[in-house]
Design a protein around this nucleic acid. Structure first.
Length: 274
DNA sequence: GCGACAG
DNA sequence: ATCTTGTCGC
């Protein structure tokens, strides 16, 4: 009776329903303001007096996945840690090559990519590693998301880490469009401005679009993941941008792709754990 | 009905 | 995400 096609459609529908419920559940634990013990490194004199208070932000993590062109199910997840106070040097790197069973569906990226990344973070934490990050930057959005709960929020809540979401393309939501944002950045009143707050038709603030490098018309899209204000997230991005994409994410991207080519045989099965 | 849709 | 070469410019 059932064609395999309709069977697949039903299965996809069921997964989406559970995924929405999961997102709503985790969303209750989301913190959208500065809730961390570290402070940003400061160089200006007026802030010198604060140097004795609290610890400075030093270890910033970055995560990303790269995919095999032959088999789109094969992916390499990478975790890197950079030293914000030492020229953004990479002080830790780990990766895991996995076979993904979950498809990519817009709005549900976390259910595909989070498991392998959580595994890499758990491995680091269980070893009580001194480089365990104070902050995690994620290739994917935070609250700039249809349900207000993107991959960066997902990873933040499940690890309790402060997180920042970085999108290289805009996930259209609440009337915001990529062309609209580009027009705003190019408009006369913003001619010298490289940062725009993303406010939707409803008046809600979703994040910010930033022209992070001179000579690039294409902005990056910053949004809060967890335990972080948008202002702080923007400051961190400014501190980590050597190129258009913030260095933690750029390094994770480079190394996930390189390790996928270099170690195509070390495929692991990644169990989904909650 | 049509288009949009992070990675 | 990935498919894809050269090319124009600082």
């Amino acid at each position: 009776m059932d064609t395999s096609e309709s069977s697949n459609r039903n299965h996809q529908f069921d997964s989406n329903k559970n995924w929405v419920e999961t997102q709503e559940l985790l969303k209750n634990r989301l913190i959208l303001e500065d809730d961390h013990t570290w402070r940003l490194p400061t160089t200006t004199q007026e802030h010198k007096e604060q140097d004795g208070m609290g610890e400075k932000l030093k270890y910033v993590g970055g995560v990303d996945l790269s995919f095999s062109k032959e088999d789109p199910c094969i992916a390499c997840g990478a975790l890197v840690i950079l030293d914000l106070n030492n020229d953004l040097n990479v002080v830790y790197e780990d990766f895991s090559i996995v076979k993904l069973q979950v498809p990519y569906i817009p709005g549900f990226l976390a259910f595909r990519e989070a498991p392998v990344l959580l595994k890499l973070l758990e491995k680091l934490k269980s070893n009580a590693h001194p480089f365990y990050p104070q902050l995690l930057m994620v290739d994917g959005n935070g609250i700039l998301h249809p349900q207000g709960f993107g991959l960066a929020c997902h990873l933040g809540v499940l690890t309790s880490l402060p997180t920042i979401g970085i999108g290289k393309n805009l996930h259209h939501v609440d009337g915001l469009t990529q062309s609209g944002v580009r027009k705003s950045l190019a408009s006369e009143e913003n001619f010298t401005r490289d940062l725009i707050t993303l406010i939707g038709h409803t008046g809600r603030t979703w994040g910010a679009a930033m022209r992070s490098t001179r000579g690039s018309s294409k902005p990056i899209f910053i949004s809060v993941g967890h335990r972080m204000s948008l202002d702080t997230a923007i400051e961190v991005v400014k501190l980590t941008c050597k190129y258009r994409v913030p260095e933690p994410i750029r390094q994770a991207d480079i190394r996930s792709r390189a390790n996928l080519q270099k170690h195509p045989e070390t495929i692991h099965i990644c169990k989904v754990e909650l």
